[in-house]
Design a protein around this nucleic acid. Structure first.
Lengths: 221, 221
DNA sequence: TCAAAAGTGTTCTCTTTACACCCATGC
DNA sequence: GCATGGGTGTAAAGAGAACACTTTTGA
């Protein structure tokens, strides 16, 4: 038992994990095994341990519940409404993560948690205040598309310029001009040719590119 | 006594309070009365109560320690490094506030806390990881100047366009073109003439403006 | 030789920046 | 009447948007 003179809240991290599947934004959810909201879908997350930083806690939860590691992860916002958890006072530091399409296979974990990708336009009801958290994460992602290279975090090791364009188009839900897009993407100087080509079906092969520094999200202008 | 099966961290809010005094960005600091860092200056803040939201807690701290209320206050970031407080695990949800120049008089509080404004370029050493928190707050403020009307929060009830320009110039530390600035400020449609004039010294009187909706910080473009 | 996707520049429009003189007042 | 800060428009430059045809390959 741990005793304190004053009451303490619990602190958790919850993670909004985005990826792109079939040109649609997807979200990773976990089916809750216990009350409250038992059987409902929720954002992955868990308690922050006393010996780990917030970022480390979020990364650990991500790893434990999904097997995913080494991806873009950033603090989103901290949610602490008094009644957000019906059991006790729980303050959650929300994070969001972007998973490239070559890492989306979910490793079966020891916890045998039920984890699944959902298209954002076809979500089940979410537990707790998770709709609010998700909503803020979407806004953040949309905003960052405009002034950073965050979307590159969705790309696999190598990709073509058209594939990169499809990523932007599917997140923004609008078509973009091919020439302008390519001019813009190359001018960033964040990607480079691999020298390889992608041969697909009966058409002209496309140059493959890679991101120069996958860990860096550049802030533009 | 409050007992838990697992250890719980303490959760606090700390507030970076900015204002402008004599055309310089200022920061409100509190002299610590107890160990650790006794006698050193620190950001105002305190424990989150179990029956209040995070925002409410931050507002309450602001009110209690400085007498200031009704100002712009926004969550900044949550800091939770394991060793950030030498006593115990303390996770702090940092906020930042912007105080208009007609509200900067600090009310003597019952706590008789020692609170003082410091110019940002002449700060004393800060306790804990408060330099890091301050640094992030400065960056946020600078960034928001560019894409929002956040700087209007520094303005008193009524002000002239030149006064508004001086606010931008002193935060950005660069001179701006008078005609372009006025064109820009009026095009926002966030301010309106009061009909009054400011007569100051021996020169042409200036039109006074007020902010149409002081609670709203507009995101630009 | 046809279908399918890759690749490539120029013009126009709009936004942003640069710049200088007259006006109203108090002393 | 002069010193002080208030007030105003236009032109040039730069950034962003619109737009169509040729190339390479597999079948």
């Amino acid at each position: 038992m741990y005793s304190y003179k004053h009451p303490h809240p619990s602190v958790t991290t919850d993670i909004v994990i985005f990826t792109l599947r079939e040109e649609k934004l997807n979200l990773l959810l976990i089916k809750r095994a216990v009350e409250p909201f038992k059987g409902q879908w929720a954002l992955p997350g868990g308690f922050v341990r006393m010996d780990e930083d917030l970022d480390s806690g979020a990364r650990r939860e991500l790893q434990e519940e999904t097997g995913i590691s080494g991806v873009f992860l950033e603090q989103l916002y901290t949610f602490g409404a008094v009644e957000r958890d019906p059991r006790e006072r729980v303050i959650t530091v929300a994070y969001y993560a972007l998973v490239p399409s070559d890492k989306i296979v979910l490793k079966a974990t020891t916890d045998a948690v039920d984890a699944k990708w959902f298209a954002l336009d076809d979500l089940p009801p979410l537990a707790f205040d998770h709709p609010e958290i998700l909503n803020m994460a979407r806004q953040r992602l949309l905003a960052k598309l405009d002034y950073s290279t965050i979307a590159f975090q969705f790309m696999p090791e190598t990709f073509t310029l058209t594939e990169l364009q499809r990523v932007y188009e599917s997140i923004l839900q609008e078509e973009m001009d091919k020439r302008n897009f390519r001019k813009w993407a190359l001018a960033l100087e964040q990607i480079e040719e691999t020298g390889e080509m992608r041969r697909k079906s009966a058409s002209r092969p496309a140059k493959l590119y890679r991101i120069k520094d996958h860990t860096k999200v550049e802030i533009l202008k």
